[in-house]
């Protein structure tokens, strides 16, 4: 839960939507602003916020919040 709370401002910022209520199910398909540049920015911002480095396997194929939460849970 706390991870989701910390992800919310990142997604709001990058997708430029102050009212976005981030849910675990949020994915690329639901947001046309989530393009490949946004993906890179999300990866970099998440790494900065959580002090982690996300594996290449994930960043090449990132399309949902759930993927990030799964990775951060490990």
């Amino acid at each position: 839960m706390t991870h989701l709370l910390r992800l919310q401002p990142i997604f709001r910022d990058i997708l430029d939507d102050d009212r976005l209520n981030l849910s675990e199910d949020f994915s690329k398909e639901q947001c046309e602003d989530w393009d490949s540049v946004a993906t890179v920015q999300i990866v970099l911002a998440v790494e900065e916020e959580f002090g982690v480095q996300l594996p290449t396997r994930l960043v090449g194929n990132l399309h949902s919040v759930r993927q990030l939460l799964d990775e951060l849970a490990n």
Binding site: S36, V37, V40, V43, L44, T56, V59, G60
Partner: peptide, 12 residues
């Protein structure tokens, strides 16, 4: 990684 992922060079 950023190079493989986004053809970004140098690093962001």
């Amino acid at each position: 990684r950023l190079w493989y992922m986004a053809r970004q060079h140098p690093a962001p």
